[in-house]
Amino acid sequence: MHAASTTDGQAMAAVTARILLEIEAILFRPQEPFTFTSGRVSPVYVDCRKIISFPRARAQLMDFGCELIKREVGYESIDCIAGGETAGIPFAAWIAERLGLPMVYVRKQPKGFGRNAQIEGHLPEGSRVLLVEDLATDGGSKLAFVDALRKAGTEVAHTFVVFHYGIFPEGVAALQEQGVTLHALATWWDALAVAEQTGYLKGAEVEAVRHFLQDPESWTPDTQATSNG
Protein backbone atom coordinates (compact mmCIF):
# COMPACT_ATOMS: atom_id res chain seq x y z
CA MET A 1 0.00 0.00 0.00
CA HIS A 2 1.12 3.52 -0.70
CA ALA A 3 1.16 5.23 2.69
CA ALA A 4 2.23 8.80 3.26
CA SER A 5 5.55 8.67 5.10
CA THR A 6 5.58 12.32 6.14
CA THR A 7 4.50 13.70 9.49
CA ASP A 8 1.45 15.16 7.74
CA GLY A 9 0.50 11.69 6.51
CA GLN A 10 0.91 10.22 9.98
CA ALA A 11 -1.14 13.02 11.47
CA MET A 12 -3.93 12.43 8.93
CA ALA A 13 -3.93 8.73 9.80
CA ALA A 14 -4.21 9.50 13.51
CA VAL A 15 -7.04 12.01 13.05
CA THR A 16 -8.83 9.62 10.69
CA ALA A 17 -8.63 6.85 13.28
CA ARG A 18 -9.84 9.21 16.03
CA ILE A 19 -12.83 10.28 13.91
CA LEU A 20 -13.76 6.68 13.11
CA LEU A 21 -13.56 5.78 16.80
CA GLU A 22 -15.66 8.79 17.76
CA ILE A 23 -18.51 7.93 15.39
CA GLU A 24 -18.16 4.22 16.20
CA ALA A 25 -17.36 3.30 12.62
CA ILE A 26 -14.58 1.18 14.07
CA LEU A 27 -15.06 -0.97 17.14
CA PHE A 28 -12.76 -3.03 19.32
CA ARG A 29 -14.29 -5.95 21.21
CA PRO A 30 -11.54 -8.40 22.20
CA GLN A 31 -13.58 -9.84 25.08
CA GLU A 32 -16.69 -10.47 22.95
CA PRO A 33 -15.35 -10.97 19.41
CA PHE A 34 -17.42 -10.42 16.30
CA THR A 35 -18.33 -13.47 14.20
CA PHE A 36 -18.57 -12.94 10.45
CA THR A 37 -20.57 -14.92 7.89
CA SER A 38 -17.40 -16.75 6.91
CA GLY A 39 -17.19 -18.08 10.47
CA ARG A 40 -14.06 -16.07 11.23
CA VAL A 41 -13.96 -14.37 14.62
CA SER A 42 -12.42 -10.95 15.06
CA PRO A 43 -11.87 -8.54 17.95
CA VAL A 44 -12.19 -5.60 15.53
CA TYR A 45 -14.97 -4.37 13.27
CA VAL A 46 -15.24 -1.51 10.78
CA ASP A 47 -18.27 -0.01 9.05
CA CYS A 48 -17.28 3.03 6.99
CA ARG A 49 -20.88 3.46 5.83
CA LYS A 50 -21.54 5.22 9.14
CA ILE A 51 -19.44 8.15 7.90
CA ILE A 52 -22.22 9.29 5.58
CA SER A 53 -24.40 10.22 8.58
CA PHE A 54 -21.86 12.59 10.16
CA PRO A 55 -21.43 15.73 8.01
CA ARG A 56 -18.45 17.27 9.82
CA ALA A 57 -16.60 13.99 10.08
CA ARG A 58 -17.17 13.07 6.44
CA ALA A 59 -16.12 16.54 5.25
CA GLN A 60 -12.84 16.25 7.11
CA LEU A 61 -12.18 12.73 5.85
CA MET A 62 -12.95 13.67 2.26
CA ASP A 63 -10.64 16.69 2.53
CA PHE A 64 -7.94 14.33 3.79
CA GLY A 65 -8.70 11.96 0.92
CA CYS A 66 -8.29 14.66 -1.70
CA GLU A 67 -5.03 15.82 -0.12
CA LEU A 68 -3.70 12.25 -0.15
CA ILE A 69 -4.77 11.72 -3.76
CA LYS A 70 -3.13 14.94 -4.95
CA ARG A 71 0.04 14.11 -3.05
CA GLU A 72 0.37 10.47 -4.10
CA VAL A 73 -1.41 10.30 -7.48
CA GLY A 74 -1.02 13.82 -8.86
CA TYR A 75 -2.88 17.02 -9.63
CA GLU A 76 -3.56 16.37 -13.32
CA SER A 77 -3.23 12.58 -13.48
CA ILE A 78 -6.90 11.61 -13.15
CA ASP A 79 -9.73 12.11 -15.64
CA CYS A 80 -12.59 10.46 -13.75
CA ILE A 81 -13.56 9.11 -10.32
CA ALA A 82 -15.28 5.71 -10.19
CA GLY A 83 -17.21 4.54 -7.13
CA GLY A 84 -17.55 0.84 -6.42
CA GLU A 85 -21.08 -0.45 -5.75
CA THR A 86 -22.43 0.34 -3.26
CA ALA A 87 -20.40 1.67 -0.36
CA GLY A 88 -17.90 3.51 -2.56
CA ILE A 89 -20.50 5.60 -4.39
CA PRO A 90 -21.01 8.45 -1.86
CA PHE A 91 -17.28 8.80 -1.23
CA ALA A 92 -16.59 8.89 -4.96
CA ALA A 93 -19.22 11.61 -5.37
CA TRP A 94 -17.75 13.82 -2.64
CA ILE A 95 -14.19 13.36 -3.93
CA ALA A 96 -15.20 14.01 -7.54
CA GLU A 97 -16.95 17.21 -6.46
CA ARG A 98 -13.92 18.43 -4.54
CA LEU A 99 -11.49 17.60 -7.35
CA GLY A 100 -13.74 18.99 -10.09
CA LEU A 101 -13.85 15.66 -11.95
CA PRO A 102 -16.57 13.57 -13.61
CA MET A 103 -17.86 10.54 -11.74
CA VAL A 104 -19.18 7.11 -12.69
CA TYR A 105 -19.98 4.07 -10.63
CA VAL A 106 -19.21 0.40 -11.23
CA ARG A 107 -21.68 -2.38 -10.53
CA LYS A 108 -20.52 -5.66 -9.06
CA GLN A 109 -22.28 -7.35 -11.99
CA PRO A 110 -23.95 -6.06 -15.17
CA LYS A 111 -27.53 -5.15 -14.25
CA GLY A 112 -28.98 -7.82 -16.55
CA PHE A 113 -31.48 -5.74 -18.53
CA GLY A 114 -31.68 -2.67 -20.75
CA ARG A 115 -28.13 -1.76 -21.78
CA ASN A 116 -26.84 -4.48 -19.42
CA ALA A 117 -24.45 -1.84 -18.16
CA GLN A 118 -21.86 -2.51 -15.50
CA ILE A 119 -20.57 1.07 -15.50
CA GLU A 120 -23.11 3.85 -15.00
CA GLY A 121 -22.33 7.35 -16.26
CA HIS A 122 -20.29 8.74 -19.13
CA LEU A 123 -16.81 7.22 -19.32
CA PRO A 124 -14.77 8.04 -22.45
CA GLU A 125 -12.35 5.37 -23.65
CA GLY A 126 -8.78 6.09 -22.58
CA SER A 127 -9.80 7.90 -19.39
CA ARG A 128 -7.45 7.66 -16.42
CA VAL A 129 -9.71 6.47 -13.62
CA LEU A 130 -9.30 6.49 -9.85
CA LEU A 131 -11.37 3.75 -8.20
CA VAL A 132 -12.87 4.77 -4.82
CA GLU A 133 -14.29 2.46 -2.18
CA ASP A 134 -14.94 2.72 1.53
CA LEU A 135 -12.44 0.13 2.70
CA ALA A 136 -10.07 -2.63 1.64
CA THR A 137 -9.55 -5.98 3.30
CA ASP A 138 -7.77 -8.36 0.94
CA GLY A 139 -8.27 -6.33 -2.24
CA GLY A 140 -10.45 -8.89 -4.04
CA SER A 141 -13.39 -6.61 -4.84
CA LYS A 142 -11.00 -3.94 -6.11
CA LEU A 143 -9.62 -6.29 -8.75
CA ALA A 144 -13.13 -7.08 -10.02
CA PHE A 145 -13.97 -3.38 -10.36
CA VAL A 146 -10.60 -2.64 -11.99
CA ASP A 147 -11.20 -5.43 -14.51
CA ALA A 148 -14.61 -3.97 -15.44
CA LEU A 149 -13.16 -0.49 -15.86
CA ARG A 150 -10.28 -1.75 -17.98
CA LYS A 151 -12.64 -3.74 -20.19
CA ALA A 152 -14.36 -0.42 -20.86
CA GLY A 153 -11.08 0.85 -22.33
CA THR A 154 -9.87 2.95 -19.42
CA GLU A 155 -6.62 3.12 -17.48
CA VAL A 156 -6.74 2.26 -13.78
CA ALA A 157 -3.50 2.55 -11.82
CA HIS A 158 -4.77 3.73 -8.43
CA THR A 159 -7.52 3.00 -5.92
CA PHE A 160 -8.39 5.03 -2.83
CA VAL A 161 -10.13 3.84 0.33
CA VAL A 162 -10.87 5.55 3.62
CA PHE A 163 -9.72 2.54 5.61
CA HIS A 164 -7.40 -0.35 4.82
CA TYR A 165 -7.10 -3.36 7.11
CA GLY A 166 -3.33 -3.35 6.64
CA ILE A 167 -3.01 -6.96 7.80
CA PHE A 168 -3.36 -8.92 4.56
CA PRO A 169 -0.20 -8.11 2.55
CA GLU A 170 -1.12 -10.65 -0.13
CA GLY A 171 -4.07 -8.44 -1.10
CA VAL A 172 -1.83 -5.44 -1.68
CA ALA A 173 0.57 -7.65 -3.62
CA ALA A 174 -2.28 -8.91 -5.83
CA LEU A 175 -3.25 -5.33 -6.67
CA GLN A 176 0.36 -4.39 -7.37
CA GLU A 177 0.71 -7.38 -9.70
CA GLN A 178 -2.17 -5.91 -11.71
CA GLY A 179 -0.54 -2.48 -11.77
CA VAL A 180 -2.77 -0.90 -9.14
CA THR A 181 -1.52 1.07 -6.12
CA LEU A 182 -3.72 1.21 -3.02
CA HIS A 183 -4.00 4.50 -1.11
CA ALA A 184 -5.70 4.70 2.30
CA LEU A 185 -6.12 7.23 5.07
CA ALA A 186 -5.68 4.78 7.95
CA THR A 187 -5.22 1.12 8.90
CA TRP A 188 -6.01 -1.02 11.93
CA TRP A 189 -2.49 -0.30 13.18
CA ASP A 190 -3.28 3.42 13.22
CA ALA A 191 -6.58 2.74 14.97
CA LEU A 192 -4.92 0.57 17.61
CA ALA A 193 -2.29 3.24 18.30
CA VAL A 194 -4.97 5.90 18.82
CA ALA A 195 -7.11 3.56 20.94
CA GLU A 196 -4.14 2.90 23.20
CA GLN A 197 -3.08 6.56 23.41
CA THR A 198 -6.59 7.74 24.31
CA GLY A 199 -7.25 4.97 26.82
CA TYR A 200 -10.03 3.48 24.70
CA LEU A 201 -8.18 0.17 25.07
CA LYS A 202 -5.89 -0.78 27.90
CA GLY A 203 -3.45 -3.51 28.88
CA ALA A 204 -4.65 -6.98 27.95
CA GLU A 205 -7.15 -5.56 25.43
CA VAL A 206 -4.37 -3.84 23.52
CA GLU A 207 -2.32 -7.04 23.49
CA ALA A 208 -5.27 -9.14 22.34
CA VAL A 209 -5.95 -6.81 19.40
CA ARG A 210 -2.26 -6.59 18.55
CA HIS A 211 -2.04 -10.39 18.50
CA PHE A 212 -4.95 -10.50 16.06
CA LEU A 213 -3.41 -7.89 13.77
CA GLN A 214 -0.13 -9.79 13.73
CA ASP A 215 -1.81 -13.10 12.84
CA PRO A 216 -5.49 -12.70 11.93
CA GLU A 217 -5.78 -16.13 10.32
CA SER A 218 -5.07 -18.07 13.51
CA TRP A 219 -6.56 -15.70 16.11
CA THR A 220 -9.30 -17.11 18.34
CA PRO A 221 -10.78 -16.04 21.68
CA ASP A 222 -8.65 -18.82 23.21
CA THR A 223 -5.57 -17.16 21.69
CA GLN A 224 -6.64 -13.94 23.36
CA ALA A 225 -6.99 -15.67 26.72
CA THR A 226 -3.54 -17.15 26.32
CA SER A 227 -2.06 -13.74 25.49
CA ASN A 228 -3.80 -12.27 28.53
CA GLY A 229 -2.53 -14.97 30.84
Rank of each mutant, 00 (worst) to 15 (best):
Gln118Trp: 04
Ser42Lys: 06
Pro90Arg: 09
Phe113Pro: 04
Phe145Asp: 04
Asp134Lys: 00
Ala82Lys: 07
Lys108Asp: 07
Gly112His: 02
Gly74Pro: 12
Glu155Pro: 00
Arg56Gly: 07
Leu123Glu: 02
Glu177Arg: 12
His158Lys: 10
Ala57Phe: 01
Arg56His: 12
Phe168Glu: 05
Arg107Gln: 11
Leu131Met: 08
Glu85His: 12
Ala96Gly: 05
Trp94Phe: 15
Ile78Val: 15
Val46Asp: 12
Ile52Lys: 03
Lys111Asn: 11
Thr137Ile: 14
Lys151Asp: 15
Lys108Gln: 09
Leu149Pro: 00
Ile167Glu: 00
Ala96Cys: 06
Arg150His: 04
His122Ala: 11
Thr37Cys: 10
Ala82His: 07
Gln178Pro: 02
Tyr75His: 13
Leu135Ser: 14
Gly88Cys: 12
Asp134Pro: 07
Lys50Tyr: 04
Leu149Val: 00
Glu170Ala: 12
Cys80Asp: 03
Glu72Arg: 10
Ser141His: 01
Ala144Lys: 12
Gly84Leu: 09
Val162Cys: 10
Ser77Glu: 15
Leu143Asn: 01
Val180Leu: 07
Arg98Leu: 07
Asp47Gly: 01
Leu175Ile: 01
Val162Arg: 04
Gly126Ile: 05
Pro169Glu: 05
Ala93Val: 13
Gly83Asp: 04
Tyr75Phe: 14
Leu101Ala: 03
Gly112Met: 07
Ala82Cys: 10
Leu131Asp: 03
Tyr165Ile: 02
Leu123Met: 05
Thr86Glu: 12
His122Gln: 11
Val106Tyr: 06
Ala93Cys: 07
Gln176Cys: 04
Glu133Pro: 06
Arg98Cys: 08
Val172Asp: 09
Thr154Cys: 13
Leu101Tyr: 06
Ser53Tyr: 03
Cys80Phe: 02
Ile78Pro: 05
Lys50Val: 13
Lys50Ala: 13
Ser127Phe: 05
Ala174Pro: 05
Val172Gln: 03
Gly100Tyr: 06
Gly179Glu: 05
Gln118Arg: 10
Leu131Ile: 01
Gly171Phe: 11
Gly140Ser: 10
Glu177Ile: 11
Ser77Phe: 02
Lys151Val: 03
Val156Lys: 09
Pro90Gln: 04
Arg107Tyr: 10
Ala57Gly: 08
Leu175Val: 01
Leu68Phe: 02
Ile52Tyr: 10
Phe145Gln: 07
Ser38Met: 00
Val41Phe: 07
Phe163Ile: 09
Phe145Met: 11
Phe145Gly: 00
Ile89Ala: 12
Ser141Pro: 01
Val104Asn: 09
Ile95His: 11
Arg40Lys: 15
Gly84Met: 14
Gly74Asn: 13
Gly100Ala: 13
Gly121Glu: 13
Ser127Arg: 03
Arg49Ile: 13
Ala93Met: 10
